[in-house]
């Protein structure tokens, strides 16, 4: 089950319908998901969830599923 706030942020950033978004939604399947919009997305998520990802994570978090897992790991700490 995807976090609805995460879904909302991804949908807003890429102009998608929330229903279209799955854990598999990623930079390869969404043409608008380029390097600049990726950083905007990550910065939006960091602001909304009050978290900060490492520079390594910034490069790796290129699918909704991976972002959700990273957020879970933060929440469990």
């Amino acid at each position: 089950m995807l976090n609805p706030h995460l879904v909302e942020i991804v949908a807003r950033n890429f102009g998608l319908e929330p229903a279209q978004i799955t854990p598999a939604t990623n930079a390869d399947t969404v043409p608008q998901w380029d390097s600049v919009s990726h950083l905007k997305l990550i910065l939006d998520i960091e602001e909304s969830f009050a978290v900060r990802f490492s520079s390594a994570e910034l490069g790796e978090l290129t699918s909704v599923g991976r972002i959700q897992i990273a957020l879970h790991q933060r929440a469990e700490r």
Partner: peptide, 14 residues
């Protein structure tokens, strides 16, 4: 934001 500098050559944080 050092990450944005190294990854995107941005001098600014949000």
């Amino acid at each position: 934001d050092a990450r944005l500098w190294y990854l995107a050559r941005s001098r600014w944080s949000r």
